[in-house]
């Protein structure tokens, strides 16, 4: 638990695990009004199984585009993305993308949403799974509620539960807590970590919040804009649960602040 030992062994906890996902010099060019715009350039990443990776950067740096490409919603203009050694050809239920709470279907109840991806299971098993994940995200009593009757944090839980219910190996989260108030956001981070530790999914998490990245990730991929590229990859060598006032935490956070070019004084 002590930060000292972590500093002496600056490898991440998952460094020895096998590679889950890699991107080989991925580039992305968009056509906007006839002009071609380079959004991503030469992205090389390697993510281990069970790793928690944060993509961090200012808005417009292409981090969401990169995540959409890895999830298979967009096809990169150049380079290749492979997961488990297989090239990504499109979205796949083994890898679920969690949008901000906007991705919850407003026409389905909490139960309906969480069971959405379980159409192939027999009814009984399906109900069991749904109630298991309702419990895991703490939404007991709201099974029959519709999303517009829920708060932002609860909707976010529904979406995470919907993703977990199909038992994917990878979760993609695109600024999932961006629309929540700061207290709910802290609670949700804790819960995400708890779930990650319990289920050991590989997680790719996009955020523009430096604290969020340093609190959650095994490694933080710092990106910068025009065209979007990887500036630096920072391993966060602090064991969970992290003490967010420890010197090592502050040192890493300040390092990233400097990297982005911000002084840490207002």
């Amino acid at each position: 638990m002590s930060t000292k030992t972590a500093m002496e062994t600056p490898t991440t906890m998952t460094a020895s695990a096998r590679t889950k996902l890699r991107t080989d010099s991925v580039g992305m060019i968009f056509d906007r009004d006839g002009k071609s715009l380079s959004v991503l350039e030469n992205i090389n990443l390697e993510v281990s199984e069970g790793e928690f990776l944060c993509l961090l950067g200012p808005s417009g740096c292409g981090k969401s585009t990169l995540l959409s490409a890895i999830a298979g919603f967009l096809t990169p203009t150049s380079g290749e993305i492979t997961i488990d050694g297989e090239a990504v050809r499109g979205p796949d239920p083994r890898r679920i993308f969690v949008f901000q709470e906007r991705g919850v279907f407003p026409w389905l109840t909490v139960e309906g949403n969480i069971g959405f991806g379980l159409g192939k299971l027999p009814r009984k098993e399906r109900a069991q799974r749904v109630s298991h994940y309702i419990q895991m995200v703490g939404l007991e009593g709201f099974e029959k509620s519709y999303p517009h009757e829920l708060s932002g944090g609860m909707k976010q839980r529904v979406e995470v539960a919907r993703a977990l219910a199909v038992n994917p190996d990878v979760l993609f989260l695109d600024e999932p807590f961006g629309a929540l108030d700061s207290i709910t956001r802290l609670i949700m981070r804790g819960e995400l970590l708890r779930i990650w530790q319990a289920e050991r999914k590989t997680i790719l998490f996009v955020t523009h919040d430096i604290d969020e990245a340093v609190q959650l990730a095994d490694r933080v991929v710092v990106m910068s804009a025009r065209p979007g590229h990887i500036q630096q990859i920072v391993p966060i060598d602090i064991a969970h649960p992290r003490d967010i006032s420890s010197p090592r935490y502050l040192q890493l956070r300040d390092g990233i602040l400097n990297q982005i070019g911000l002084a840490h004084k207002l």
């Binding site: 919603f73 979205p91 796949d92 949008f99 906007r102 991705g103 279907f105 959405f116 991806g117 159409g119």
Partner: peptide, 23 residues
């Protein structure tokens, strides 16, 4: 994002139309 979510969970186009787009 609704359509993407539907595709992500492995729905066929017909099911995306009936279970996502229509509702």
């Amino acid at each position: 994002i609704y359509r993407r979510a539907g595709r992500n969970f492995g729905l066929t186009p017909a099911r995306i139309l009936s279970r996502v787009v229509f509702p």
